[in-house]
Nucleic acid binder design. Structure first.
Length: 508
RNA sequence: CGGGGUGUAGCGCAGUCUGGUAGCGCAUCAGCUUUGGGAGCUGAGAGUCGCGGGUUCAAAUCCCGCCGCCCCGACCA
């Protein structure tokens, strides 16, 4: 082997500079770019198609659990936001506010806002309050419940620091808002939707997650309980990938969602809300992406297969293209995940190797090269995105077409298995504070290397202990995992008795 | 919003210290040659050097102010 390292499509590599790698993959895979507006992004067709597939799959799951879609206004009267005290406190600092409704030419010819609004409008950071006000009108009787509504929308949160997909000023999401007759029903809904998210992450994103509950410090403003799914990225930091909130009667009280119950009494409804956002795209990138770019899980990939004709000479050209067209048609007639296989035929007149690398960077699951030799032997030359770029194999064309669904499913499963193994390798049980510090302290403080992971450690339940590790090590409690057996122990910070382990990690 | 870094062609960068009218690689376009793995040769196009002001005969370069982006911190999906 020569001293020269094998060239990677992305520089720097993950190990060299993870945040820079992340940005370069977004560029190289043509997912998105920054915009003239600070903190806002342009989602490009290849990235948006991924979002559309996420949306379609989740939307189906929401309908299967009895929900319907609706749409509520982008603008929320300021007074609505003021109704729930904790909610105000949580969001006030990051609200964009509309104060005028007209532009007029100023003395220097420039446009200036005019027509000041009587009441400023807040661009929704989330829609609990305006949906609550609407539900208050819709709900009179227990017969009007439950209300099970979702909306796909954009929201704005004026964040200090933004990162493409992970935290942008404007982002796309879905927010489910439900109202129920009983506490139990609302609680069940909260847990049901958390499970929908967990299943979606596992089955579609091929991203293992831990479902659990947030500590009081990390709760959604105004919620009684907040549940979440937490994933581990390849820099071993945690990414909150979805949340489901049990809101109790807090927002019903704020918005006066009152119904007459079966006993004829007036009662506040029990509500929930739950959401996932375009952040999931960042999650997919950081779960599966490698030093050659994006890796799309087949079930969500904008396209499954790209056919790359090898056009060696003009005399071959027509025959090769015809063979490729037939192959594309045969693949499109095949099914994967209950729908036709999505196929690209890249007949652009460019160097074959260059085109191939472009598709590798975009993360398409399967590449198929077809040249005169393949046609002569009635075969195709196949490359999988979950394998090394040069690790390819020839296969009989009919077998390849017949097996395309199984191949895509195999890639989907291998991505999950790899991510799951990575998470397992970087999840450790920790007992004492010395080990805890060692786990979360980088060896090189000047330019921290990838370090840490998920620490499963005991916690007494006290906010002081939680805050102390956050202040000292920038480590937060990601969640109290659901469905784990109780295990008594001693709090990693203070040594007090603890009923169970929780997940500590650095987080996005 | 505090500390650090950075901003020069679509992308990655040199040039800045020591002021002299902008360069390299990749990409793009044209032509020819190539073609089973990120092609070669020749030629071409493309930059208000982040923005604004100042010093100077002359500013990418020096000075002042502002802005964007990245990292760390506070905050968060």
């Amino acid at each position: 082997m020569t001293a020269k390292q094998e060239q990677t499509a992305i520089t720097p590599t993950r190990a060299q500079d993870y945040p820079e790698w992340y940005q370069q993959v977004i560029r190289a895979a043509d997912l998105a770019e920054t915009s003239p507006v600070r903190g806002c992004m342009v989602i490009k067709p290849w990235g948006f198609s991924l979002w559309e597939n996420i949306r379609a799959a989740l939307d189906r799951m929401f309908r299967e659990t009895g929900h319907v879609n609706a749409y509520f206004p982008l603008f929320i009267p300021l007074s609505f936001l003021e109704k729930e005290a904790e909610h105000v406190e949580g969001f006030a600092k990051e609200c964009a506010v509309v104060t005028h409704h007209r532009l007029e030419a100023g003395p220097d010819g420039k446009l200036v806002p005019a027509g000041e609004l009587e009441e400023p409008l807040v661009v929704r950071p989330t829609s609990e309050t305006i949906i609550g006000a609407t539900y208050a009108k819709w709900v009179q009787s227990y017969r009007d419940l439950p209300l099970l509504i979702n909306q796909w929308a954009n929201v704005v949160r004026w964040e200090m620091r933004t990162r493409l997909f992970l935290r942008t000023t404007e982002f796309l999401w879905q927010e489910g808002h439900t109202a129920h007759e009983t506490k139990q029903e609302a609680w069940d809904e909260t847990v049901r939707m958390l499970e929908v998210y967990r299943k979606f992450a596992h089955d579609y994103m091929a991203m293992p997650v831990i479902a659990g509950e947030k500590t009081p410090c990390q709760r959604f403003p105004g919620a009684v309980n907040t549940f979440c799914i937490e994933a581990m990225m390849q820099d071993r930091k945690a990414l909150q990938a979805g949340t489901s909130h049990f809101l109790g009667q807090n927002f019903a009280k704020a918005s006066e969602i009152i119904f007459q119950n079966r006993a004829g009494e007036r009662e506040f409804a029990w509500t929930t809300s739950w959401g996932v956002s375009t952040r999931l795209i960042g999650g997919i990138l950081m779960t599966h992406g490698d030093d050659n770019g994006m890796v799309m899980p087949p079930r969500l990939a904008p396209s499954h297969v790209v056919i790359l004709p090898i056009l060696r000479s003009d005399s071959d050209r027509a025959a090769v293209l015809a063979y490729c067209e037939e192959l594309a048609a045969a693949l499109r007639a095949a099914q994967y995940d209950g729908a036709p296989v999505r196929v690209e035929l890249d007949a652009r007149d460019q160097n074959a190797g260059e085109k191939s690398w472009q598709w590798i960077k975009k993360g398409i699951p399967v590449r198929v090269e077809v040249g005169p030799r393949d046609i002569a032997s009635n075969s195709v030359f196949v490359g999988r995105r979950d394998k090394a770029p040069r690790e390819r194999y020839g296969q009989n064309r009919a077998e390849f077409v017949a097996g395309i669904g199984a191949l895509l499913e195999d890639i989907q499963n291998s991505l999950f298995a790899k991510a799951d193994a990575f998470r397992a390798e970087n999840t450790v049980d920790i007992g004492g504070m010395d080990d805890f510090r060692a786990f979360f302290t980088p060896a090189n403080a000047g330019k921290p290397e990838i370090h840490g992971g998920f620490a499963r450690a005991h916690w007494c339940g006290g906010a002081e202990c939680e805050n102390s590790v956050t202040n000292e090590l920038s480590v937060t409690i990601r969640c109290v995992p659901s469905g784990e057996a109780d295990e008594t122990g001693k709090c990693v910070v203070c040594g007090s008795p603890s009923p169970r382990r929780v997940i500590f990690a650095k987080a996005y």
